[in-house]
Design a protein around this nucleic acid. Structure first.
Length: 1022
RNA sequence: GCCUCGAUGGCGGAAUUGGUAGACGCGCCAGACUCAAAAUCUGGUAUUCGCAAGGAUGUGCAGGUUCGAUUCCUGUUCGAGGCACCA
């Protein structure tokens, strides 16, 4: 019987589906294990062989855990909202819902092909209204909450209102506006609008302003991705940064908790470090500088301010110790005070500079450090201690969003400040003595501060303390902890995303659940509603279209054109946007939020939904979330290091704070999978065209690699190129007729890797694809008739023609081979190129395995007693596979299986082969299922191998009694000697030193030292 | 530019805690079977010197720690991912 993987795999896939083998129950006595993959965005290109890498790893782990007796939750779903679908809709007119549905179907088919043990009854799709109903619900929880800094947790905003009524905000500083202060009487006198504006400064989901890419020509806001080289990707129109009102999540309030609770997570140090750096905690000081504003300037309302204003410029610095080295100040060009302090004669230069900066991305501003730009404002600031006047500049290297958007520049101690000072000829004060050489800033954090009044002679830490104390004493500064982390922009001016459950009444945003009726009519016990406008709230729930109901469904549109003034496409649907409320005279106009939520909204909590995916009254039953709890193993790419993973952590913490779930970290253990890169292939083409006396001629000659290399050397000399081609014997096109006025190009370009075997072109397939005939195209091969290509390792992508579809591999070799080969490629977390060629080895291995059980006549398994050697290899394998899976070293597992099968050659004993079939099940489930059933009575068993117990190894078969030691002299291994495992040093020493070879290497010298590490090695030092 | 990671034969990689570098597989070479091919099986395969025995070199590069370094430290080169609206 041959190994007929097609039949076997189709058969068992059908069985698994019919028997619902992978359906998971929330009720079980077994210990639970939650194994999760980062769900994919279903792109139009389908899966390529890189995508399943992590899925296979998690599948192996999930199957192993199930064999080990766990109740394993292993779900899959789709992150189905996103920009590409909308982009595609704009280009083709197909509705994103339609294309997304199609893409999902394709993904599902491809995933099924590989034999994953997903419980598809739990599938989630973020674009499904039944799902995003709860995304909207969670948004409302965040909208109706504020962050209590003293208790370090989110609390319902109704509790904040109670506090304000009692004591104003004297004890609760305002995160949105630190200067805001009011007492209870003021609060009570506020109008409803004023109150809600004030609350907005506290809400965890709030409205603010952010810079976005604005494209006037397209009339739309663009994503960073859509801006290429400073112009729009579509149409190459100019773009600029524009400030627009947006929704945000106040993730900065969680900065400290997000930072400290990283310590308890089983994530790679690299991953934690990336998150730490992203959060970017730094301790320093906030210092106020007086700015000389002795100049008249025009206020916004047109009145002329005579000057002498007490303008204070706040800066944040991590190096308060360098305060005496301040030689100038720099403001972000967007800083709100720039226009205020700029002198009349500098106004034009400043305005021009600001225009320039508007065209620059943050990335460019941070990365192009060698290009120094800036503009003097004409203003000077007083040094707080010396009263010295230092110039105030603006420059793009200072970002508005970080710290206070202004810095005190210390050129002798900071590289960028130094470069800036040198470039603009600003005199530099040295505060580091001879440590500073005048050429390069001294940015090291060791040494003492000099030339700094009361700080002179102190080390950096002490000087910082002293400086801060003095600043506090003078009332012009304070100790300050700063985070690089910024609040998360949460709105997009797009169609294909979750609509906000927000309604504006007279420009004031309300949650659609704000009603005196139960807060969330769908149940779920939401945060207590908050609005104080009785009539208004009541009306909201009675309004047309029953706005109190979630979800707010995404309306169907036919056009994806942006709305007016940069609004999203939803703004064009007047019927949907405008709501009429029976509010009485002049108050009936209400409208919906027209922004949609960003891609990460749905993915920030999907792991919770899998626990209870069909619940219509809650996002998930508390019993279910308590049972499944944290994700035990989460596998995905590092590209999500700071985006998705940080937002998910924040949402989990918020839901925990508000009492909806019982844990505040979503992913206990995280494993990053590397990328599988594409291995691109290139062909070389000589293209020429010329006009002869009678007609115009053109042609293309595909030359093999060695010809290309030679031609490349003479590329600039057409005569020589023609001569070369003629000498190869090409008579086509009358090459010899080609004269010097020919245009002739030699190019190297991508070729579809599916037309290549190794580096050799599949010539018939290539000719067919390119429509070769006697008039079109010619192939110039190597002497042996082969056409050789160039190779390069690149990202796997359609545009590089290096995409390999898993379906093709599965069709040719089977899913089991594909799964094992992906694992065999290397460590799961390392990027590596795909090479289809190597798959033969793994396929051969499975055939070899098969032949232990079957020969031409059929099953050949017997009941003979196994030998010691056979038992040893089996038990070693069981041990190694278990250990390897626990440490996610799947490539070495595959090697071990190969070693095992090699050593078992000729063994057909049930006692060995039955446990082996179960052991290999996580890796190659189809063949394992077949073998396991074949070994049963009459070639069939009840149930599936996935419920068999993973075999246990016996210690006596895996321990060795003796060890062949490498014996080294002076660290260089010279011979091998065998000793019992329990040999003592004295005995070993005697034998080793008596050895002839060792004697020879000792050259008569006496050993200085004898190193004997039990079970490892022996080293003689002379 | 900044943050994180990586670099080992012709190729993918192994070496789990500082202890025999190159397991396993691909490719290549030789042989067996075959009329032949495919498939399968056996042996060899880091570089270099040597007929051989055996020696020297070798884990991106330059140093350091150690009896001993692919592994730890410092510097450096190159490559990958991320840098806040791709997902």
């Amino acid at each position: 019987m041959e190994y007929d993987f097609k039949k076997i795999e189709a058969n068992w896939k059908k069985y698994w589906t019919e028997q619902q083998v992978y359906k998971v129950s929330n009720n079980s006595n077994k210990p639970k294990c939650y194994v999760l993959d980062m769900f994919p965005y279903p792109s139009g290109a389908g899966l390529h062989v890189g995508h399943p890498l992590g899925y296979i790893a998690s599948d192996i782990y999930a199957r192993y855990k199930r064999l080990k007796g766990y109740n394993v939750l292993h779900p899959m779903g789709f992150d189905a909202f996103g920009l590409p679908a909308e982009q595609y809709a704009i280009e083709t007119g197909q509705h994103p819902a339609v294309t997304t549905e199609k893409n999902i179907a394709r993904y599902r088919e491809q995933l099924d092909n590989i034999g994953f043990c997903y419980d598809w009854s739990r599938e989630v799709r973020t674009s499904d209204p039944k799902y995003y109903k709860w995304t909207q619900w969670i948004f409302l929880q965040l909208f109706h909450s504020w962050y209590d800094r003293k208790e370090q947790k989110a609390r319902p905003i109704s509790e904040l209102i109670s506090i304000f009524e009692k004591e104003g905000n004297t004890n609760i500083s305002c995160p949105g506006d630190e200067t805001l202060q009011f007492d209870s009487a003021t609060w009570k006198n506020y109008s409803e609008k004023e109150r809600r504006d004030c609350l907005m400064q506290y809400r965890i989901a709030y409205q603010g302003y952010a810079q976005v890419w604005w494209c006037e020509a397209l009339g739309t806001v663009l994503a960073n991705d859509e801006v290429v080289n400073g112009v729009s990707e579509r149409g190459s129109h100019p773009v600029e940064r524009k400030n627009m009102r947006q929704w945000f999540l106040r993730i900065t309030e969680y900065a400290e908790r997000l930072l400290t609770s990283l310590d308890n997570l089983e994530w790679s140090e690299a991953m934690k470090e990336m998150q730490r750096n992203w959060i970017g905690k730094s301790v320093g000081a906030e210092i106020e500088f007086d700015v000389v504003a002795d100049i008249p300037f025009v206020e916004e309302d047109g009145t002329v301010n005579p000057g002498h204003a007490n303008i204070l410029l706040k800066v944040f610095t991590t190096r308060p110790d360098t305060i005496f080295g301040v030689d100038f100040m720099v403001l972000a060009p967007e800083h709100e005070m720039v226009d205020t302090i700029t002198l009349p004669e500098q106004r034009q230069a400043v305005a021009e500079y600001k225009t320039y900066v508007k065209s620059r991305s943050e990335r460019e501003r941070m990365s192009e450090v060698k290009q120094i730009t800036g503009c003097f404002t004409g203003a000077y600031a007083f040094h707080p201690f010396t009263e010295r006047q230092v110039p105030v500049w603006i420059s793009e290297y200072v970002l508005a969003g970080y710290g206070t958007g202004a810095i005190m520049a210390v050129p002798s101690g900071d590289e960028r400040d130094h470069a800036f000072a040198k470039h603009f000829n600003i005199p530099i004060t040295n505060i580091f003595g001879d440590k500073y050489n005048g050429e390069e800033a001294y940015s090291s954090k060791t040494g003492t501060i000099e030339n700094s009044d009361f700080l002179s002679g102190l080390n950096i830490a002490d000087a910082s303390e002293a400086a801060i104390n003095e600043l506090v004493k003078k009332g012009i500064g304070k100790r300050k902890v700063n985070y690089k982390l910024r609040d998360a922009g949460f709105s997009r001016q797009r169609y294909w995303g979750e609509p906000f459950p927000i309604v504006y009444v007279e420009g004031v945003p309300y949650g659609i659940d704000e009603s005196p009726l139960p807060a969330s009519p769908q149940g779920g016990g939401g945060v207590a509603q908050e609005t104080s406008a009785r009539d208004l709230s009541a009306s909201l729930s009675k309004g047309e279209g029953d706005v109190a109901q979630l979800p707010v469904e995404l309306p169907f549109v036919e056009s994806y054109k942006p709305g007016p003034e940069g609004q999203g496409p939803l703004a064009n649907i007047k019927d949907w946007v405008n709501i009429s409320l029976p509010l009485g005279e002049g108050r009936g106009e209400a409208s919906r939020e027209t922004n949609t939520m960003p891609g990460y909204a749905g993915s920030s909590w999907y792991f919770l939904r899998y626990m209870d995916p069909h619940n219509d009254t809650e996002f998930a039953d508390r019993k279910a979330t308590d049972y499944w709890n944290q994700v035990d193993l989460y596998i995905g790419g590092t590209e999500h290091a700071v985006g998705h993973l940080l937002y998910s952590r924040m949402w989990t913490k918020a839901l925990y704070d508000l009492g909806h779930i019982g844990f505040d970290e979503p992913f206990k253990k995280l494993l990053n999978q590397g990328m599988i890169q594409g291995s691109s292939r290139f062909v070389f083409e000589v293209i020429f065209s010329f006009i002869s006396s009678r007609s115009s001629k053109s042609g293309r000659i595909f030359v093999s690699k060695t010809h290309y290399q030679k031609l490349k050397l003479i590329e600039n000399d057409k005569g020589k190129v023609i001569e070369y081609l003629v000498n190869t014997g090409i008579d086509k096109y009358n090459i010899a007729d080609i004269r010097a006025d020919t245009t002739l190009r030699i190019i190297r370009h991508h070729i579809d890797v599916n037309l290549i075997y190794g580096i050799e072109l599949n010539i018939p397939a290539f000719k067919e694809k390119f429509g070769f005939n006697e008039y079109n195209g010619y192939l110039l091969t190597e002497e042996n008739g082969a056409y050789l290509c160039d190779t390069e390792i690149e990202k796997m992508s359609k545009s590089k023609y290096n995409v390999v579809n898993p379906d093709d591999i599965v069709a040719q070799y089977g899913a089991d081979t594909f799964r094992m080969y992906e694992m065999f490629l290397g460590p799961i977390d390392v990027s590596k190129p795909w090479d289809t060629k190597g798959i033969e080895g793994v396929h051969r291995f499975l055939k070899k395995l098969w032949r232990l059980y079957f020969d031409d006549s059929g099953l050949i398994v017997n009941d003979e007693a196994p030998t010691e050697a056979e038992l040893r290899v089996l038990h070693k394998t069981i041990k190694k596979i278990g250990e390897d899976i626990e440490r996610f070293s799947f490539n070495t597992s595959v090697s071990q299986f190969m070693i095992c099968v090699n050593e078992l050659a000729g063994c057909h004993k049930r006692a060995i082969l039955e446990p082996l079939a179960i052991t290999i099940c996580p890796f190659a489930p189809h063949i394992a299922e077949e073998l396991w059933h074949q070994l049963g009575p009459d070639g069939y068993r009840d149930g599936s191998v996935v419920d068999a117990p993973f075999p246990l190894y016996e210690e006596r078969y895996v321990t060795e009694n003796t060890k062949k030691y490498p014996v080294a002299v002076n660290g260089k291994t010279r011979i091998e000697m065998e000793f019992p495992m329990d040999a003592e040093q004295a005995d070993v020493e005697q034998v080793v030193l008596a050895d002839e070879t060792i004697q020879k290497w000792l050259e008569g010298k006496t050993p200085k030292k004898f190193i004997y590490v039990k079970g490892k090695m022996i080293n003689v030092v002379v």
